[in-house]
């Protein structure tokens, strides 16, 4: 019996294997959630325009129950990070993410949001939004066409289908900690890295002092 339940008849992503049991209740729960994902209205860069295209005349993702794009994080289920995330913007993005109520999902749209994109080598670009907030689906492309974005959304729906009420994080007993908001110092600073930054600073200072000394000698 349990065997049967454990093999739901479709693929389970490797990272979730072994923790998933899909029941009838889950099916209803997931069905209702997957068909009313409200994305946050929030465009960052070029990809944001393609996201708007996906919402307008030709592609119209309201066909998936996503017509209500909410400018407020409090009312949205899905953050589409559509474009280049810069160091100046990431504190706001983390804050918005923290403000979204559970269950929440993040979709990284385009090369920039996934891993830095063509501007990765630059000095003020974050090399992937997943360095700060957990990402559920990555949509490659620069920019992904609206159809590619919708494919990403369908991929997200598939992920939702495989979740179970029993072990989703928002029903667990422990409270979900908000993500610490990065700060803008001489460069972007993640509060979780403070000890490392301090150590690095001391080492670098020592190195800098050594070099002129060596040169003099």
């Amino acid at each position: 019996m349990t065997e049967e339940v454990n093999i739901p008849g479709y693929d389970i992503p490797p990272e979730m294997e072994g923790q998933v049991t899909i029941t009838a209740l889950d099916k209803i729960y997931n069905w209702s959630r997957r068909n009313s994902i409200w994305p946050m209205m929030f465009g960052l860069a070029c990809c944001g325009i393609e996201m708007i295209c996906a919402a307008t005349s030709r592609y119209d993702f309201s066909r998936f129950g996503m017509e209500v794009m909410r400018p407020s994080p409090r009312q949205s289920d899905l953050m589409i990070v559509s474009g280049t995330v810069t160091k100046k913007m990431i504190p706001q993005i983390v804050r918005l993410y923290n403000q979204m109520p559970e269950p929440k999902y993040v979709l990284a749209m385009g090369a920039c949001a996934s891993g830095g994109g063509p501007f990765k080598e630059g000095y003020s670009v974050v090399d992937g939004v997943d360095k700060f907030i957990p990402v559920d689906v990555y949509v490659p492309g620069c920019p992904p066409t609206p159809q590619a974005l919708i494919h990403g959304l369908i991929t997200l729906q598939k992920k939702i289908d495989k979740q179970s009420i029993k072990n989703v994080r928002w029903y667990s007993k422990d409270p979900v900690e908000p993500i610490p908001i990065p700060l803008l110092g001489p460069d972007l600073m993640d509060p979780r890295d403070y000890a490392l930054i301090k150590q690095y600073g001391t080492e670098k200072l020592a190195e800098d002092q050594q070099v002129p000394a060596a040169e003099e000698a």
Partner: peptide
């Protein structure tokens, strides 16, 4: 273009 993934 249909190459969305869960793990980059």
């Amino acid at each position: 273009y249909e190459i969305s993934v869960y793990n980059r």
